[in-house]
Structure formats: C-alpha cells, structure tokens
C-alpha cells in the first residue's frame, strides 16, 4: 500500500516525496530491517516453513492467492463496515438522549456501562446460535464491541461545553436546538472521533472473532482453514491482509476527522 502511494507521487511532485520520506523514512527502515532479520534468521537457523515462514514466502503466498484473500477480505470488510455503521447510527443518537434526558442518563447509561463489562466476545457463540452462519452474527459482534467507545466518548464530548459558554449563547437568545448545533455538537466532535477511532479497530476484532466461531467466508474463517491444513504461510498472509484492512479503515476515519476538523490540530498543538 505504501509503495504504491510513493510510486504514484514522484512525477507529480518530488518535494512531496522528499517530505514523505523524511517523515516516514525511519519507520520504513525499521520495518524493513525487522523483515530482513526475520528472513535472514529463518534461513540461517533453517526454521521449518510450517513453524515460521520467511517473509518472502508470505509475500509469495499473498501474490499467488490474491483472489482467495481478496474474496475473504471483502466479506470481513463488509461485516466491519456494517457493524461500525450500526454503532454510529445507533450510538450517536443514544448519546444525545443520554445528554438531554434525565431518564436515559439515570437508567440507560448505567445499564450500558455495566453491559460494557460483559466480554462481547463471549456473546459471539450465542449470536451465532440465534442468527446463523451468515454475516449477521459477525456484524452484531462488531457492532456490540465498537458501540461502547463511540457512545461513551460522544457523551463525554457533548458534556464538555463550559457552563459559561452555555450561559453566553442563552443570553444571545439561543434555544436548546441552536445550542446543540452551534456549541455542543462541534465541541464534541474531537471526542466523538476519538471514539470512532477506537471503535473501528474494535469492530475488526469483533468481526474476526465472529468468523472464528462459525463462518463460511471471511479472513477469520480463512485462517481457521489454513490452520487445519497447516498452511502457515497462508495463515500469516491472512494476518497481513487483516492488518492492512484495519489500518486502512482507521486511516479513513482519521482522514475524515482531518477533513472535518482542520482547526483541531491547531487547538491540540498536534502539527505535522
């Protein structure tokens, strides 16, 4: 993914490439030397392929089995996306309800917090029993696991507006809706995005765990198959694709955040 990104750039703008290398060069060098050492050590100590395949073998497997990996990755991607979207669509309105309704704050919120202590992974077999072998149980696990960080961060964010700030807009004649749109919601956005970033990573975990329990497709299912066949290289290839999937989805959230909150990096002092 990264090499494709850099290959595209040089003709357009060599300065951009130089900046990119100076920013990410060290990290690339470290990653490259780890894989180099791995390759070298596997060769030097003659580590059997079924215990630890060389990076070159893993890459080779990824190239030869790309259709298989892509097919299963697409299913996992779909599950994560659906579960995550559900978390947002249900989580954000629920957070608003908790902030604005005393009833929700007193009853629903403590209920949700205590429910959060239940290991969602342990619910996966039950969900499979109820919802079958399709993508639905995986979507549900992804949803359950990514739902809490999203709700809780949204609630914290929407409560973070200063009391005086609320006074100030009240004195300008703002009603509750205006206060929400102009103050509470934008004020909450950095916190909401914090929750989304945690949530998207969790959603990937949820989907794969769901696939471990019972599935016919997905990268988790592919791993189980590879394990049974002692195809360690494919097992590793699935891990790599899964990581790439997670990183990609995280980066999409981070990119939307940067797009929506250009001011936030100034306010928090995080500059590039």
């Amino acid at each position: 993914m990264t090499s494709a990104g850099s290959a595209r750039i040089p003709s357009a703008s060599p300065n951009w490439l130089a900046a990119w290398i100076s920013r990410n060069g060290l990290m690339l060098a470290i990653v490259a030397s780890i894989f180099g050492l791995w390759e070298l050590a596997s060769w030097a100590f003659a580590v059997p392929e079924y215990v630890l395949p060389k990076p070159s073998v893993i890459v080779g497997t990824m190239i030869t089995s790309w259709r298989l990996l892509l097919l299963h990755a697409a299913v996992t991607f779909q599950e994560v996306l659906l579960g995550f979207t559900m978390s947002i669509v249900i989580g954000i309105p629920l957070a608003i309800a908790v902030v604005y309704s005393r009833l929700f704050e007193r009853i629903a919120f403590p209920f949700m917090v205590s429910l959060q202590t239940v290991p969602k992974v342990a619910l996966a077999p039950i969900l499979v029993m109820w919802l079958g072998y399709g993508i639905m149980p995986k979507v549900m696990v992804a949803f359950l696991i990514s739902f809490f960080p999203i709700v809780i961060n949204a609630v914290i964010g929407m409560r973070s507006a200063e009391k005086e700030m609320i006074y100030l807009v009240r004195s300008m004649g703002a009603n509750e809706l205006t206060t929400f749109i102009k103050i509470r919601l934008p004020k909450a956005l950095p916190s909401i995005f914090g929750g989304l970033k945690v949530g998207i990573g969790q959603a990937v975990v949820g989907a794969v765990v769901g696939e471990f329990i019972a599935a016919e497709y997905g990268l988790g299912y592919l791993q189980l198959m590879a394990q049974v066949r002692l195809d360690t290289a494919l097992l590793f290839a699935a891990v790599v694709v899964l990581s790439l999937l997670g990183v990609m989805m995280f980066n999409v959230v981070a990119w939307v955040e940067r797009l929506m909150l250009p001011w936030n990096r100034l306010a928090t002092g995080a500059t590039e």
């Binding site: 200063e162 005086e164 700030m165 006074y167 703002a174 934008p186």
Partner: peptide, 28 residues
Amino acid sequence: TSAGIVFQRDLLLDWRTVLDNVLLPVEI
C-alpha cells in the same frame, strides 16, 4: 438578550475563525 457578556474565560469557539467568532451573536 439585549446584553453583551464577557467572562474571565474568553470562551471562543475553537472551530470558528476570529471573524466568525465575533459574528456568533449575529448568527444566533
């Protein structure tokens, strides 16, 4: 609503430019 209020904390909105902050009462 006829009063202008200034608190010890400036209470500027981080996501608005200086000009848009000044125009907040006009908008509301």
